[in-house]
Design a protein around this nucleic acid. Sequence first.
DNA 1: CCTGGACTATTTGTATACAATAAGCTGCAC
DNA 2: GTGCAGCTTATTGTATACAAATAGTCCAGG
Lengths: 205, 205
Amino acid sequence: MILAGELPPGTQLSEEALALRCEVSRTPVRDALRRLESDLLIRRSESQRSFVADWSDDDIEDAFELRAMLEAQAARRAATRIAPAQVEALRHHNRLIGAAIAGERPDIPAFLDNNRAFHEIILTAAGSSRLASLLTRLIEQPVVWRTAQNYDRENLQRSHHEHEELIAAFARGDAAWAASIMTGHIRRAFHAYLDAYTAQRTAAE
Amino acid sequence: MILAGELPPGTQLSEEALALRCEVSRTPVRDALRRLESDLLIRRSESQRSFVADWSDDDIEDAFELRAMLEAQAARRAATRIAPAQVEALRHHNRLIGAAIAGERPDIPAFLDNNRAFHEIILTAAGSSRLASLLTRLIEQPVVWRTAQNYDRENLQRSHHEHEELIAAFARGDAAWAASIMTGHIRRAFHAYLDAYTAQRTAAE
DNA sequence: CCTGGACTATTTGTATACAATAAGCTGCAC
DNA sequence: GTGCAGCTTATTGTATACAAATAGTCCAGG
């Protein structure tokens, strides 16, 4: 609901209200709130009340910067550990991405799905549960989720192409190459987001 | 209890048993277990049962590698944001560290305390709640916690000296310098830990 | 002796009740 | 009108009861 924008930043989230809304008791709601808090989607006041977190421009830049660092590290590790079958799986998902963006109107949900699967394979191949745990926390954030919504055709195709390059780096086992492509991949996503976001905000004024 | 080694790796942690042991109900125990799980101190089976995580050599290297990346990033950000008062606070804590390791027998608890405070100031100065959230997760881990226990006098003094260099880098606002010192600082800690750990393990055989 | 299946026991998930605490509000004094 | 005291209400923390799922055990059969 937060990601979908149903709950604007600053909204107070009372356990009881959410429990009613979701038709469960407070106990599982509590668990979920704690998790969302550790994902920084929720901020808690000093008196432990929960509110939907708001994101400043700095927060957004920060999230992308960290994600770029960690995804690059994942790519670096994956390059020397990835199995041939996994490389094949990457090719498969990137073919589906290619198909999703080929038509007149790109199929954004399909793009998102395969993009997520693509990055997940790399994270798995990196073989670091710690890294996976840290990254999972970053990619489930509103900024990242909304990015692709704003991608234009050119950005979608560049993304697809960068994936191809990543596959090539993995096929050669070149860790430095993979890491640098990944850094650029995420940073470009950041700027695409910024462009779309500031354009949107300027239009609103 | 996990950090103190009272609960060896692999031990099953039942909510009820812990509740009895801590003289509280299962509810707060559940909360704590979820948190420890997200810190990777606890591993959960497919059937959601909790066990004390065990740490392979790869896990240890991995944790230090990530910590080096993130602490370096914190130092990089802090270098251009830190306030003079914070630099003074760093000097203060490092003086205390110097005092703690000066005597015949170094005062390890005092070292740990001031070392933690030192790194915390840097993390605060970095001004990134996301980075703080990720790092906190890494530094509350057994490996890191035990490292200083095994430090010999030489390592303690090197650590003290590296802190001095960090302060110099901060005073100049040199982000690249600060980041590279921090990387080295953490990596040296890693090797110090490795030396102590393997020596200990060899002795046990 | 090993295997499979049913039964029992353990353990976690969820619901709910009550306690503690903090926020908001009303009315009074200045 | 402003500020504060006290009360009311909202909200979270904790305890406990029950349901569901899983693991361990024991016995029968091959």
